[in-house]
Amino acid sequence: MKEYRPKYQGTHTVYVFVESPDVTPQDLSLRAYEAAPDLMIKETCFGLQITGAPERVAEVVATLRALDPSHIFVKDRGFPPGDPRRCRANMGGARPGFFGHEYELSLIRFISGGLEALARREAGDSALDALERKKKKPLDPDRLKTIFDAQEPSHG
C-alpha cells in the first residue's frame, strides 16, 4: 500500500446548478470570478464547481443564488474538481453521479415552479395536510375503468 496525501485539505467543494431562462453557466462563472478571485472555480455545462475555504464558499453561493433564487441549486461535493478518481477526462463515459443529477434536473422545473409559488400560498393552506390527503386519495373512477378494461374476458 502506498501513502495517500490529500490535496485541498480543509476545503469545501460545491456544485452550483443553473436551469434558468435568464442566467447561463457563463454568466454565473463571470459573477463568481468577480465575487471570489481567491477560490477555485470551474465552469461546467450545468453550472459551476466552487472549491475553497468553507465560509468563503458559503458567501459566494449566497451571492450567486441571489441572481436567480428559484433557478439556481446548490449541492455539496466530496471530491475536488478534476480529481483523477472521478473526472471523466481520465475514465471515459459519464462521471459517476451524472445520471442522478440528470434525472433530478429533468424534474427541477417543478421545483422552480414550487419555489415561485411559495409566496402565493395562503397562510392556512397546509402542504403537509395536502400530502396526507393525497396519500389517502380514493381510487379514481377513470383509473378503475381502465383496470376493468385491461382485464381479459374470462372464457369459463
Binding site: 424534474l107 422545473r109 417543478f110 421545483i111 422552480s112 415552479g113 414550487g114 419555489l115 409559488a117 411559495l118 400560498r121 402542504a127 403537509l128 395536502a130 400530502l131 393525497k134
Partner: peptide, 8 residues
C-alpha cells in the same frame, strides 16, 4: 405536485 413538494 411541485408546489406541494416544496411547501411541505
Amino acid at each position: 405536485e411541485g408546489e406541494i413538494f416544496v411547501a411541505a
